[in-house]
Each structure stands twice: as C-alpha cells, then as structure tokens.
Lab assay of single mutants.
Amino acid sequence: MKVIFLKDVKGKGKKGEIKNVADGYARNFLFKQGLAIEATPANLKELE
C-alpha cells in the first residue's frame, strides 16, 4: 500500500515521502498513530 508519511518514522520514511509499505503495517500502526495517510489521488493532490 502506498502511504504519505506525515512524520519521520525511523527506518521507514521521512515526512512528505511517498512509499510502499505492508498493508497491515500501514493500517495497524502508521494510520492509528497518525504517522501516515493513504496515498489516494485526493491526498496526493493536497500534498502538492
């Protein structure tokens, strides 16, 4: 799953980066902790 990092995550990505991560990792950790959001077309447009 592609995500947009909202904060730096050690060993995974830095704020503003778009990366592929495991679905479970994204849903169970990154999204719940507010560290990333899903890289949907709408979210990508907001990032620009």
Rank of each mutant, 00 (worst) to 15 (best):
N28E: 13
K2I: 13
I37M: 10
G16R: 02
E46W: 15
E48Y: 12
A42E: 14
G11N: 09
N28S: 10
V3Q: 00
L44G: 04
K14N: 09
G13A: 11
E38R: 09
K45S: 11
G24Q: 12
K14H: 10
V9M: 04
L44S: 06
D8W: 07
N43V: 12
K10N: 10
D23R: 14
F5N: 00
E38S: 07
V9D: 01
L6P: 00
D8S: 09
K14D: 05
K19Y: 07
K32E: 09
G16Q: 02
K10H: 12
K32T: 11
T40M: 05
A42S: 12
K45P: 05
N43A: 12
E48Q: 14
E17F: 02
T40A: 04
P41E: 14
E17S: 05
T40N: 08
N20W: 15
A39K: 02
E38H: 07
E17N: 05
L6M: 08
R27T: 08
A36L: 02
K7M: 12
F31H: 00
V3R: 00
N20D: 13
G16D: 05
E38G: 03
Y25R: 06
V21E: 03
I4P: 00
E48A: 14
K12T: 11
V9H: 02
K10W: 14
K10Q: 12
L44R: 07
E46Y: 13
V21I: 09
F29K: 07
K45F: 12
K15I: 09
Q33N: 15
P41N: 09
I37R: 07
N43E: 06
I4R: 04
A39F: 12
L30D: 00
N28V: 07
K19I: 09
G13F: 14
G34H: 10
K7V: 14
I37A: 07
V9S: 02
A42P: 07
E48I: 14
K2Q: 11
K19G: 07
L6Y: 02
M1L: 14
R27E: 07
E48N: 12
E48F: 14
D23E: 15
D8Q: 04
I18H: 03
P41L: 12
G13I: 05
E38I: 08
R27L: 12
K45D: 09
F29G: 03
T40P: 05
D8R: 06
E17Y: 03
D23V: 15
K45Y: 11
A22M: 10
G11Y: 08
L6H: 01
K7R: 13
I4Y: 10
K32F: 07
N28F: 12
N43F: 09
K12V: 15
I37V: 13
F31W: 02
P41Y: 11
E17G: 02
K10G: 08
G11L: 04
N20K: 12
E46T: 13
I4F: 08
Y25A: 06
L35R: 03
Y25N: 05
A42L: 11
R27H: 08
G16V: 01
I37K: 08
E38P: 14
D23T: 15
F5L: 08
D23G: 13
G13V: 06
Q33I: 08
L44H: 05
D23I: 15
L44K: 06
L30T: 00
G11W: 08
N20G: 07
I37F: 03
L44Q: 06
A39M: 07
I37D: 02
Y25E: 08
K2A: 11
A42T: 11
G16I: 00
K7F: 13
V9F: 04
E17P: 00
V21Q: 02
L30H: 00
L35K: 04
V9T: 03
K7G: 05
L47V: 10
K45N: 10
I18L: 07
L47S: 08
A36G: 04
D8Y: 08
N28M: 11
F31R: 01
F29A: 06
E38Q: 10
K45H: 10
L35Q: 04
V21L: 05
G16Y: 08
K12S: 14
A26N: 03
K45Q: 12
K2F: 14
K19D: 03
K2V: 13
N28L: 11
K19Q: 07
K45V: 09
Q33E: 11
V3A: 02
E48H: 13
I37L: 10
G13D: 02
A42N: 12
V21R: 00
K45A: 14
D23L: 14
I4W: 03
K14T: 08
L6T: 06
L44T: 07
A22E: 14
L47D: 06
G11A: 05
V9P: 01
Q33G: 07
N20H: 14
M1Y: 08
N43S: 09
A36D: 00
V3I: 09
L44P: 03
G13M: 03
R27M: 10
A42I: 10
K12H: 15
G16W: 10
K10P: 15
V9Y: 04
T40D: 05
A26L: 12
K32G: 07
L35Y: 09
A26G: 05
F5P: 01
R27S: 06
D8I: 03
L47H: 11
K7A: 14
Y25Q: 05
K10Y: 13
K14A: 09
L35F: 11
E38M: 10
A36F: 01
D23Y: 15
K15H: 05
L6A: 02
K15P: 04
Q33F: 15
V9I: 08
A39Y: 13
L35M: 08
D8G: 06
K10A: 14
K19A: 10
K14R: 13
E48L: 14
G34Y: 08
A39R: 01
K32S: 10
K12E: 11
G11V: 01
I4D: 00
L6F: 03
F5R: 00
K45T: 09
A36E: 00
G24D: 15
V9Q: 02
T40V: 05
L47Y: 15
E48P: 09
F5Q: 00
A42Q: 13
I18S: 03
K45W: 10
P41F: 11
N20E: 15
V9G: 01
T40H: 06
V3E: 01
F29Y: 14
L30I: 01
G34D: 05
V3T: 01
G24K: 13
N20Y: 15
A36S: 01
G13Y: 13
A36V: 06
G34P: 00
E46R: 14
K14I: 09
D23A: 15
P41H: 10
E46D: 11
K2N: 10
K32N: 07
F31E: 02
V21G: 00
